[in-house]
């Protein structure tokens, strides 16, 4: 039985559907990231799990219990808010202590736990400062400490590291990962930072316009995007229009003058082929032909822009001394069929 289950969760604001039939299961101790463009419903989803917004449909089960039936203050979740939501009239230490006070933890234990939590986020010097007198990053770390100190079994993190500098962010990422590993806290992390999601998560959930596009491990989502949106959203990709059809040896997709075998069963019709720039190489035969429009030296690698009958392609080659085509040269490009993803043509590809 999964630890957290979102079942067809839906939220509408007027006639705008902010979260549309979101279903997701999260195992205990898993760290899962919600990724997606601004306004795709990530915060709204978290707010429904937390109970600050009433769902218009669907269920949320936590550890076998119906979460939506519980009041927000009885859910016992740890939450880091996108806007921090610190108590402005309390000092940093008082902010962190609040949840412990509500749990009636004895004064001495409380003080020690607050000090530990502040130390964890590197703010041991700032305990008696008010939020208005702290920088954005410091406030964010207080918010993180406040959520961590109550040792919740489920932690909802709405862009908890967005305002930290690179070094501090890395430290906090390691800290989150450590807590998740050692304490076994289940975490749902909303982030704009793809590399953060890739580095931290057991699985990523890519959302767009309130709908889940793909749930997969970071590597799987990167290598085998479920659709054009995911392919475009996660890293740079080349998306080539083609025609899916049945060939002699099974299903194939035809892209301009090249033909590629399709592994999964697919209906015939218009489709798209996604392949990452770094997975494309120059071949002698059996590939897609084109002309080099431009090549740019980037230190460790070369960036090529190639004009083909199926559109422009981005190609990245390592700068390892092997001979590379010049500008305006006729070339043929190809890739391993394992490195490409084929998907139905998607009008919503953004």
């Amino acid at each position: 039985m999964a630890y957290l289950v979102l079942d067809q969760l839906t939220k509408r604001f007027g006639n705008w559907t902010a979260v549309d039939n979101v279903s997701l299961t999260v195992e205990k101790g898993e760290l899962i990231s919600l990724l997606g463009p601004s306004g795709c419903g990530k915060t709204t989803t978290l707010q429904m799990i937390a109970g600050f917004l009433d769902a218009d449909g669907g269920r949320v089960m936590l550890d076998g219990q119906d979460l939506l039936a519980k009041k927000p203050n009885e859910r016992g979740l740890g939450i880091v808010f996108q806007s921090y939501a610190l108590f402005p009239h309390m000092t940093a230490a008082e902010n962190v202590a609040f949840g412990l006070e509500m749990r009636r933890i004895a004064r001495a234990d409380r003080d020690r736990m607050v000090a530990d939590a502040l130390k964890l986020v590197g703010l041991e010097q700032y305990g008696d400062r008010h939020p208005r007198r702290m920088s954005g990053g410091q406030q964010q770390r207080v918010a993180l400490a406040r959520a961590l100190v109550i040792k919740p079994s489920l932690l909802l993190l709405d862009e908890p590291l967005s305002n930290l500098d690179a070094k501090m962010r890395e430290e906090m990422q390691i800290e989150l990962r450590r807590i998740q590993r050692t304490v076994g806290t289940t975490m749902i992390l909303v982030t704009h930072d793809q590399s953060e999601a890739m580095a931290l998560s057991d699985r990523v959930v890519v959302m767009n316009k309130g709908r889940i596009q793909q749930v997969a491990t970071p590597q799987e989502a990167y290598d085998h995007p479920a659709n054009a949106f995911v392919a475009n959203f996660l890293g740079r990709t080349n998306l080539l229009p083609g025609m899916v059809g049945g060939g002699a040896g099974g299903t194939v997709i035809t892209v301009a003058d090249s033909v590629w075998p399709v592994a999964q069963p697919m209906a015939a019709g218009p489709g798209a082929l996604a392949v990452r720039p770094e997975k494309i190489g120059f071949v002698d035969a059996g590939g897609l032909s084109g002309t080099v429009l431009a090549r740019v030296f980037q230190g460790t690698q070369w960036l090529f822009e190639i004009e083909t009958a199926a559109g422009r392609l981005m190609v990245i080659r390592q700068h390892d001394g092997s001979p590379l085509p010049a500008e305006r040269e006729r070339v043929m490009v190809g890739w391993r069929t394992d490195d490409m993803a084929v998907m139905p043509a998607d009008r919503e590809a953004a």
């Binding site: 600050f52 939501a85 108590f87 402005p88 109550i150």
Partner: peptide, 15 residues
């Protein structure tokens, strides 16, 4: 900030 009230709720405070 209405979220501040929510934060207090989430930390276990009654209304």
């Amino acid at each position: 900030d209405p979220q501040v009230e929510n934060a207090a709720l989430s930390l276990g405070a009654g209304p």
